[in-house]
Structures are given as C-alpha cells and as structure tokens.
Measured scan of single mutants.
Amino acid sequence: FKEKSRGVLREWYAHNPYPSPREKRELAEATGLTTTQVSNWFKNRRQRDR
C-alpha cells in the first residue's frame, strides 16, 4: 500500500469504518487498489481497533 492510498483510506475510516460496496468501489478507483484490497484493509483496521 502506498502512503497516499493509506492516507485516503485512513481519512475515510475516521468518518465511516463500514463503507458500502459502492463506496468501496469508489475508494478502489481513488487509491488504485482492488475492491478486495480495500475491503481487507477496512476489515483488518476494524480488527486492530478492537
């Protein structure tokens, strides 16, 4: 994950830790990652924050 991608994901996570499938697609396009990578990032981040 590039620093820029992580920044976008972290910013989004601060507002909404549970993005919808459509939001995940938009995030994937914005970061250049796949929707699966975006989903996993959020899942792992939520797990880490428990």
Rank of each mutant, 00 (worst) to 15 (best):
Y18N: 12
A28K: 00
E11P: 00
Y13A: 05
R6Y: 15
T35I: 14
R10K: 10
E11W: 00
K4L: 12
E23W: 00
T31Y: 00
P17R: 08
K2P: 06
Y13W: 04
Q47S: 10
R22L: 15
R50W: 09
E26I: 01
P19S: 00
Y13M: 03
Q37A: 08
Y13F: 07
R10C: 13
L9Q: 01
R22C: 14
A14Y: 08
E3K: 13
A14K: 13
S39D: 14
D49V: 02
R46Y: 02
A28P: 01
P17F: 02
R45N: 07
R46P: 03
G7Y: 10
E26V: 06
N40S: 06
T35M: 07
E29W: 03
R10D: 13
W41N: 00
A30E: 10
E3A: 05
F42A: 02
T35K: 08
K43M: 07
A14C: 04
L27G: 02
A28M: 00
K2S: 14
N44R: 14
T34L: 06
A14M: 10
E3L: 06
K43F: 06
N40G: 09
R50A: 08
K4H: 13
F1V: 07
K2F: 11
A14S: 10
K43D: 12
A28W: 04
T36G: 12
L33M: 13
L27I: 05
T34Q: 07
L27H: 03
R50S: 07
K43I: 10
W41V: 03
N16T: 12
G7I: 15
V38R: 02
V8A: 09
Y18Q: 10
T31N: 05
W41F: 08
S39W: 00
F42Y: 01
E11V: 00
F42V: 01
A28H: 13
A30S: 13
E26S: 06
Y18D: 08
L27P: 02
L33H: 07
E26Q: 04
N16Y: 02
P17N: 12
E23K: 09
N44F: 02
E23Y: 00
R48I: 09
D49Y: 13
Q37L: 04
E29M: 06
V38Y: 01
E23H: 00
R48T: 12
R50G: 12
V38H: 02
R10N: 11
K2C: 08
F1M: 05
W41D: 07
L9G: 00
Y18H: 08
W41Y: 15
F42M: 04
H15V: 14
R6N: 05
A28C: 09
T34V: 02
V38P: 02
A30F: 05
R46H: 03
E23D: 10
Y18C: 11
R48N: 13
H15Q: 11
E23A: 05
R50C: 05
K24F: 12
L27C: 03
F42W: 00
R25Q: 11
G7M: 13
S39P: 01
T35V: 11
P17V: 09
Q47A: 05
R48H: 14
E11R: 05
N40W: 09
R50T: 12
H15I: 13
Y18P: 03
N44E: 12
L9W: 00
P21K: 07
K4W: 09
T35D: 09
T34K: 14
R25I: 10
R48Q: 11
E3F: 03
P17G: 05
L33R: 08
Q37G: 06
P17E: 07
E3D: 12
A28E: 03
N44L: 08
N16R: 03
D49S: 05
T35N: 11
S5D: 07
T35S: 09
T36C: 12
L27Y: 10
P17L: 06
R6W: 06
W41R: 04
R45P: 04
F1Y: 12
K24Q: 15
T31Q: 04
S39F: 03
G32C: 07
A28L: 01
R48D: 13
E26M: 04
F42N: 02
S5F: 06
E3I: 03
G7W: 10
F42E: 04
S5R: 08
T36S: 10
K2Q: 10
R45V: 11
Y13D: 04
D49A: 04
P19V: 05
K43R: 11
R10S: 12
N16M: 00
K43W: 03
W41E: 03
E26P: 00
S39M: 04
N40Y: 08
E26T: 03
V8T: 11
A14E: 12
A14Q: 13
T35Y: 15
L33K: 09
R22P: 14
Y13T: 01
R46I: 07
P21V: 11
A28T: 08
P19N: 00
N40E: 11
A30H: 08
A14L: 09
G32R: 07
Q37M: 07
W41L: 02
R45I: 10
V38I: 10
E23R: 03
S39L: 01
T31F: 02
L9F: 04
E11G: 08
R22N: 14
R46Q: 13
E11K: 03
S39V: 04
E11S: 06
S5N: 13
K2L: 11
R45A: 11
N40F: 02
